[in-house]
Amino acid sequence: MSAAPDHDENHPHDLAHHFDTHRQQFDAGKLGMWIFLVTEILLFSGLFCAYVIYRANHPEIFIYAHQFLDKNLGALNTAVLIFSSLTMAWAVRAAQLEQKRALVRLLSITLACGFVFLGVKAVEYHHKWHDGLLWASQYNPKHHDSAEHNEAGHGAESDGEGLHGEEPKNVGLFFSIYFMMTGLHAVHVIAGMGAIAWVLNRARKGHFNRRYFGPVDFVGLYWHLVDLIWIYLFPLLYLIH
């Protein structure tokens, strides 16, 4: 996809030598990206399957444990990712229309959103680490200061069974699943940010034009998939009722 051999002067430098047209090059790249996204979906489906099986067998664990997650931070991160998807889709449009300055700006915003997402995630992980809310073998919750939690979790969580409800056995199961799902997702966010940084650098060098913007489009597809998976993770982990 990068520089094509220059031995044919009539062949555009941004058209790989084995393609006849930019359109053919774009369509082939896009299909390749979609096939890759399919494998990503199947990768995540293993974790979704684990989630479904454990939730079906031990619903009480999920109902109890989700109270330790902060809905507000989850919703904030959902909004950040959706906004970054907007700027990414807008960046693809800017690349197609050869709006170089807008493209660089929009990619930078998207990248910044990735940092915000990871920052919020780090705050959440730190809080869980501090409270001993870890995966199965390491699950060792410290006694809860309810005032502190109400502040973090807002009123909606303090009604019903609440944190003072009877703790079911094996609550660590929930955190095993939580850390695997959000952890794998975070790894994808980091990979996506790396890809965006690469495309941003190329955009600054002016590599893209109305016939050659494939890399922006394909990185965008990957970023949207990461958003799409979070759209399911958020209600499944944070909004259990």
Binding site: N10, D20, T21, R23, F26, W90, R93, Q96, R211, F213
Partner: peptide, 24 residues
């Protein structure tokens, strides 16, 4: 190759659909 490259510059807008901003 030359013909193809020239042809591709004629169908600029057909490489992919450009998403209108109001839709985004």
């Amino acid at each position: 190759t030359t013909e193809a490259a020239t042809a591709s510059s004629h169908d600029d807008h057909e490489i992919a659909h450009v998403m209108p901003l109001p839709v985004l």
